[in-house]
């Protein structure tokens, strides 16, 4: 077991090389700046920016809802790219699998927040908690699709097997997204139902800046969450590898035991 290209050994190496000081520092910096940005966004969004002519104070959801949705799609995009790269033989690496899993988890959290804030926003502006808008419907389906993906990831198994299975599932889930979006939009356009448009509001001045800040701040928070979750997954993988060495030793020791049993 001395060849470094053994998968078992490779996991150990990547596990050890996982938290190089620089990467960790960058991630922490992202987190810090992001959190400061979030605090600023809250302050600007709740106190500094003016209420909207149409929506009044409800417009303040503008500083959280769109950036959450953006984060969710960004997270799924990263997860998809990492999965695709894992399946590509030349770039196959368990670290990519960890990125895919970590990003999908963040994506599910952001999707959940997007749906809740969207619903809170929709009730007073459109008069309904939910509407079968293409974007909304696609987001809700994405939410359940990726809950399924995470359930699949949580199943026990050999890391390589789990990684390949998850990557294939992620790809299959992801190509469903445009099909869903297209079909739902078309469905809506055919049914000339009461499509409810939010009152057109001008976004300018302090509002625009706050909106921009919210995007930057929450994106940085996403990067930080991703990095932390990835680091944790690396530590778990290292535990598994250390556990493996013990398991191998234990298994080999069975030989002595059975011999002793025969002798007695």
């Amino acid at each position: 077991m001395s060849v470094a290209s053994h998968p078992v050994e490779a996991v150990a190496l990547t596990g050890r090389a996982l938290a190089p000081a620089r990467g960790a520092r960058i991630a922490s910096a992202c987190g810090l700046v992001g959190l400061v940005g979030v605090v600023l966004t809250v302050w600007l969004g709740l106190w500094v920016t003016p209420p909207d002519a149409y929506m009044g104070n409800l417009v303040r959801l503008l500083y959280i809802h769109p950036s959450m949705a953006w984060d969710a799609f960004l997270a799924y995009g990263v997860s998809f790219l990492a999965s695709a790269a894992y399946l590509w033989p030349r770039t196959r690496d368990l670290r990519l699998d960890r990125v895919a899993g970590a990003s999908a988890e963040a994506g599910v959290v952001f999707t959940g927040i997007t749906l809740v804030t969207g619903s809170l926003w929709g009730r007073p502006t459109w008069g309904v908690w939910w509407t079968w808008d293409p974007l909304l419907t696609t987001t809700a389906l994405l939410f359940v699709l990726y809950l399924g993906y995470l359930a699949l990831r949580r199943l026990p198994g050999e890391p390589e097997v789990r990684a390949r299975r998850s990557a294939i599932a992620a790809l299959v889930a992801f190509i469903d997204v445009p099909i869903v979006y297209f079909s739902v939009s078309w469905w809506r356009s055919l049914h000339q139902g009461p499509t409810i448009q939010p009152g057109r509001s001008e976004v300018h001045g302090s509002m625009a800046w706050t909106l921009l800040l919210s995007f930057v701040a929450f994106s940085l928070v996403y990067v930080w969450m991703l990095a932390e979750r990835y680091r944790l997954a690396g530590l778990q993988a290292r535990d598994e590898v250390e556990g493996l060495a013990d398991a191998l030793a234990e298994r080999r020791a069975e030989a002595g035991m059975s011999r002793a049993g025969e002798a007695s």
């Binding site: 359940v144 399924g148 469903d176």
Partner: peptide, 11 residues
């Protein structure tokens, strides 16, 4: 697991 994976995709 099967229904959770199957139904959303065939939406």
């Amino acid at each position: 697991l099967l229904p959770l994976l199957f139904f959303p995709v065939v939406a």
